[in-house]
Design a protein around this nucleic acid. Structure first.
Lengths: 165, 165
DNA sequence: TATTGTTATACTCTATAACTATA
DNA sequence: TATAGTTATAGAGTATAACAATA
């Protein structure tokens, strides 16, 4: 019986053979590795009934300057209409409050509630654990180097339209 | 006039402040960096009328063992129904041929045509250029280290259901 | 009984356009 | 005239279920 796996006749997995083009593409490896991590984190957060995007918004509102929905949209690359949906849900859950900006009455200023902060803390723990497991194959030095590399690649590109200074 | 950017009062971009939680998450940086690269490559390929997925399939079929649609599905994490659509399109474009497997008449063996190989070569050049621009901020050593790190992280996880040996 | 490929269908997610209120 | 937020709608993308042919 011929194997139906993508394995060549000498038993070498296709992905590791030099003639498998994608395996040699930095971009493809990057793409795949990030997708696996995103899936791991999403799966972990789902056990607590939370989605990754929800977590990202919670974390964005937790510190630093006060953000509006448009700020969030630019910061997290979310469509403004998507932000409305997420904030609606978060407000309904009692995690976020909309307050009209006194300086510009078109805008809402978004604030985490105490419940929102508690929920964020739980989600952070879950995400932290998932990431730790994901990166468990790396040494501390290697992970530190990875973070430095990622920061350098992102330099000047994120947050894209937010960080204009 | 108060700035509507996510910039704090001292002018430090929110993303770079210590109190902006997401900026400290390896997973978030990873997620964002990979998304930007994927967008760059997609945008570049679109100038030649090609999508990233199409390119991935071309590259998967270019070398190594002969693949069936199910193999592709597992290798690239594509739904089998999605593979049907992509291969239909590729066959229509004259880039791929379906040939019934003699050993298992349920399966198709997928082969690139000469046209498919030419198209792949062009797409590879485009993707290569886009990746080079994306990684231009990194030194050779840093990029080599990144690839090594990515490979280690992917070890045993990709290709997931394909590489079972 | 399980698997490959296929179609039809439903569902989710995102993007588009139009509207209001404010600037 | 432009921007923040909102709604309704359309579109793309994906997943689900059922089917025929083959193992």
């Amino acid at each position: 019986m011929v194997s139906n796996d993508a394995v060549s006749h000498d038993g070498t997995p296709a992905a590791l053979r030099d003639d498998f083009l994608l395996a040699g593409r930095t971009g493809f490896l990057f793409h795949r590795a990030a997708l696996l991590l995103a899936e791991d984190v999403e799966r972990a957060l789902l056990t607590a009934g939370m989605r990754t995007r929800y977590f990202f918004v919670l974390a964005s509102l937790a510190g630093g300057p006060t953000l509006s929905q448009q700020d969030l949209s630019r910061l997290l690359n979310l469509d403004p209409t998507t932000v409305v949906t997420v904030i609606d849900e978060m407000e309904h859950n009692g995690h976020v409050e909309r307050r009209r900006s006194a300086a510009d009455r078109r805008r809402y200023e978004l604030f985490l509630t105490d419940d929102g902060r508690e929920t964020l803390a739980k989600a952070e723990q879950i995400a932290f654990d998932a990431e730790s497991a994901y990166f468990s194959g790396l040494g501390d030095d290697e992970r530190t180097a990875l973070v430095a590399t990622l920061r350098r690649v992102l330099e000047g590109r994120w947050p894209a339209s937010v960080c204009t200074t």
